[in-house]
Design a binder for these strands. Structure first.
Lengths: 244, 244
DNA sequence: ATTATGTATTATGTATTACATATTATATTT
DNA sequence: AAATATAATATGTAATACATAATACATAAT
C-alpha cells in the first residue's frame, strides 16, 4: 500500500473536518431566519447590531454575510433605513461572469448550445402569443437589414432574435439571450472560419424565418430556424467531439 | 401640476446624482485590473494589503469588494496562500434564489416556461449525440417507473428528463434543469388542479417518449414531448393571459 | 542522510472601536 | 402652517490588533 493509498484509507475512517467559517454559519442562519419568519419581498430585516448581539459575533462577520446576500440580490440596504428583502434578479452577476476569458471551453460550449436550444424551443410560446402587430414589427426590423450579408452580425442578430423572445412574452428569456449573444459570437468567431463560398447554399435568412412565422406553425418555424442556425449546430457538434 | 409631477419634471432636467460607494468603485477597479493584466484561471491576485495601499482605501472596503467577487465565484481565498482567480460557476447562487417564496409570480412563470422551452429545444443535440447505450439507460429508468400513475412525480421527472440532458452532453443544462424542477413543480401544483377524469386521453408517458427517441427523429421526439407537456403548456398560456 | 517534529512567517479571518454620512422624525422658528 | 434647523438612527468607512491555517525552514532523532 503506497503512502497515498494509506492516507486515503485513513481518511475513509476519520473523515476530514469541514470547517465552516463564522461568516458561512451566519449566512446560513440568516437564510433560515428569513424562511422561519416567512419574510416577504419588501419586509425589513433586523439591524446589523441586533444581529451581532443575537448571534454573538462581530459586526465584521455579520456584514460579510450580509454582503454576500446583497451580492446575489436577496437584500438591499439603505443608508439609514436598514435593510429589506428584495425580489432577487436571477440574472444578477451573470453579466460579470459571461466573459470568454474567465469561462472554460466546456462552459462556453454549453452556453453556445444553450442559445441554440432556446431558439428552437421557443416556438410553442411564440405561436401561442404572437399578434398581428408583432409580425409587422418583425418586418420593420427586416427592412433595416436589407443588405444583410454577413452570417452573424451581432446587432442584427440581437435585435431580430431578441424580438422573438419579446413576442413570446418571457422577459427573463429576453434578457438572458441578450447576455448570451456576446458569448455566442465569441465561440462562433473562434471556431473554424468558413470561406464565403462555403456558405450553405440554402442559407435561411431572417426574412425566411418571418415568412415561416407569418404563414406557418411551430414546426415550420423550427425548420426555418434550424436551417438558419445550421452551421452553428454543425460546429458545436464537431467541437464537442473534439473535446471528448 | 402636482408636487410630485413637479419633482419629476425637475428631475428630468437635473438627473439624480448617483453615488458609487467606495466598495462599488473598488469592485470595478478590480475587474478592470483582471482584464488589463489578462489574468487567467488559477492566477494569483495581489494581497489585500497591497490593494489597500495601491487604491488608498481601508482593508474593510477592499474586503467587501473581494467578498462580492468571491460570492459570484470569481475568486477564491485560501487562508495563508492569498487569492486566486477561479473558473466561476455560472449557476452559483441560483440555488439560493430559486425559491418560490422570494420570486415574483412573473419570474416564476418565466422559469416554468424556460423548462418547457428547454425540453423542446434539446432535440437536435439529443439526436446528434445519443448512443445505443443511452437508449438502454432510458429503458432501465422506465422500468423503475412501471406503475407510473401521477402526472408529475418529482423524482421520476428529475431522473428521466435529467437523463435526456445528460445524453445531450451539456452539463450546465443538466444542472440547470435539476434546479429548475422544484420551481416547475411549485408552479404546477399551485395552478388549477385537474381532476383525474380531466387528464388528457392521449397522455404521453415517458415510455412513449423513449419510443420516439429510439425509432424517430427530432421532430418525432418533439411531438411526443409536446404532448407529454401539453397540460403544462396549456396552463402557462392560460396563466400568462391572466397576468396581462 | 532521512524522517519527523518544532518554529517562524505570512495572509486571510475575526474582533473592537471610532467616526462619517444620509435619512427620518422631531423640534423650532418665522 | 410652512419652512427650517436639530437630533437620532443605521449603514458605510477607517484603523488597529489579534487569531488562525498553510507553508517554508530549521532542528533533532534515528
Amino acid at each position: 500500500m503506497s503512502k497515498r493509498e494509506g492516507a486515503r484509507n485513513l481518511q475513509s475512517k476519520l473523515r476530514p473536518i469541514i470547517n465552516y467559517s463564522l461568516t458561512d454559519q451566519v449566512e446560513t442562519k440568516l437564510l433560515e431566519l428569513f424562511k422561519k419568519e416567512d419574510l416577504r419581498n419588501g419586509d425589513a430585516i433586523p439591524k446589523e447590531n441586533e444581529l451581532c448581539e443575537a448571534m454573538g459575533v462581530s459586526r465584521t462577520v455579520i456584514r460579510e454575510a450580509l454582503t454576500r446576500l446583497k451580492t446575489i440580490g436577496l437584500i438591499e440596504s439603505k443608508k439609514n433605513k436598514g435593510m429589506i428583502l428584495t425580489e432577487p434578479d436571477l440574472l444578477i452577476g451573470l453579466d460579470k461572469l459571461l466573459q470568454p476569458k474567465i469561462l472554460s471551453e466546456e462552459t462556453l460550449q454549453d452556453m453556445f448550445e444553450m442559445r441554440l436550444v432556446l431558439e428552437m424551443g421557443i416556438a410553442e410560446l411564440l405561436f401561442a402569443r404572437i399578434k398581428p402587430a408583432d409580425i409587422a414589427d418583425l418586418k420593420a426590423i427586416l427592412k433595416t437589414e436589407k443588405d444583410y450579408p454577413a452570417l452573424f452580425e451581432m446587432d442584427f442578430e440581437a435585435r431580430f432574435h431578441g424580438r422573438i423572445y419579446e413576442i413570446a412574452r418571457n422577459n427573463t428569456l429576453v434578457r438572458f439571450q441578450s447576455m448570451l449573444l456576446p458569448i455566442f459570437k465569441y465561440v462562433h468567431d473562434k471556431g473554424l472560419k468558413l470561406k464565403d463560398e462555403e456558405l450553405p447554399k440554402n442559407y435561411v435568412t431572417h426574412a425566411l424565418i418571418v415568412k415561416a412565422i407569418e404563414t406557418g406553425n411551430a414546426e415550420k418555424y423550427r425548420d426555418a430556424m434550424k436551417r438558419h442556425l445550421k452551421i452553428h449546430f454543425d460546429k458545436t457538434i464537431k467541437m464537442r467531439k473534439l473535446l471528448e
